[in-house]
């Protein structure tokens, strides 16, 4: 490990890994135990300042903010991971088919893609949520669908590039079928590009989820969510600034950590 660090003086990667690691650890701990019950209200602790008992203070109902941040982070991470998963899986399938086969299928799917792409993904997610209704599952689904076009486009152009190389022709000549060529031969070669777009996609998903919850259509109370906490804290910004600062800080750190990690992995190559 020490040798590796010396060889790769990759500040971005190390910093990103540390930030993300600490946050992930917190989320994992939060799944099993939080310092206080996340929904337990306590009038005596209303707007308690950060102290040893309550590291991040308490909110307007006297709930422990650290506990709620831990739960909110868990929700955010879960939604972001699933969103990126949906976006990647369908994006890869659509993009790969379009890039490989071209022709009419490509034209039709990519024009639909263009239409979806022309809306900001948060707006698209809003439309889908207004059709499906709110809730964790629906938010994930909506964001996932909204993320497909960008992945499809990246994958398509990469697959097109690989298709012009001889090894693809060579595989076809070996008698390999289309699906084998796409998924066994081409896909591993677009992994570097796919990986960094997955990481950037994860960041966008974190922000989009926080945005939707902030607007009140994401995770529903009493479940905690970072975006939701921010919007509630807004009204108490001057009486209890810590209520807004800590959830906001966690969002920033999450995005920063992943951005550094993504930067670091591209440097590695």
């Amino acid at each position: 490990m020490k040798k590796w660090l010396k060889k790769h003086k990759n500040f971005n990667f190390i910093a990103g890994a540390i930030i993300t690691g600490v946050l992930l650890l917190t989320v994992l701990i939060g799944i099993f135990a939080t310092p206080y019950d996340t929904t337990q209200m306590n009038v005596a602790d209303k707007f308690a300042k950060p102290s040893f008992a309550h590291w991040m203070g308490c909110d307007n109902y006297g709930r422990d903010i650290l506990s709620r941040v831990m739960e909110g982070m868990g929700n955010t991470f879960l939604i972001a991971v699933l969103t990126v998963l949906i976006g990647t899986v369908f994006g890869v399938i659509i993009g790969a088919l379009c890039g490989y086969f071209g022709g009419l299928l490509d034209d039709i799917l990519m024009r639909i893609n263009d239409v979806l792409f022309s809306f900001p993904s948060i707006l698209l997610a809003l439309v889908i949520i207004s059709l499906l209704g709110t809730g964790r599952l629906n938010v994930t689904l909506a964001l996932g669908i909204a993320f497909i076009p960008s992945f499809a486009r990246i994958v398509r152009s990469e697959v097109k590039k690989q298709c012009s190389l001889d090894y693809v022709k060579s595989a076809a000549l070996m008698g390999a079928g289309h699906m084998r060529i796409i998924f066994v031969h081409i896909l591993p070669n677009i992994m570097p590009v796919l990986l960094s777009s997955v990481m950037i996609g994860f960041n966008n998903a974190v922000l989009a989820e926080a945005g939707l919850s902030y607007l009140g259509i994401g995770v529903q109370p009493p479940a905690a969510s970072l975006g939701r906490m921010l919007s509630e804290a807004q009204s108490f910004l001057f009486t209890a600034p810590w209520y807004a600062i800590f959830p906001g800080l966690v969002i920033v750190l999450t995005v920063l950590g992943f951005a550094l990690l993504a930067e670091g992995t591209t440097e590695e190559e």
């Binding site: 190389l165 001889d166 090894y167 031969h185 070669n189 992994m191």
Partner: peptide
């Protein structure tokens, strides 16, 4: 082109 005729990740 033997450079591109082999799959670089296999």
């Amino acid at each position: 082109e033997p450079m591109t005729a082999l799959n670089p990740t296999m």
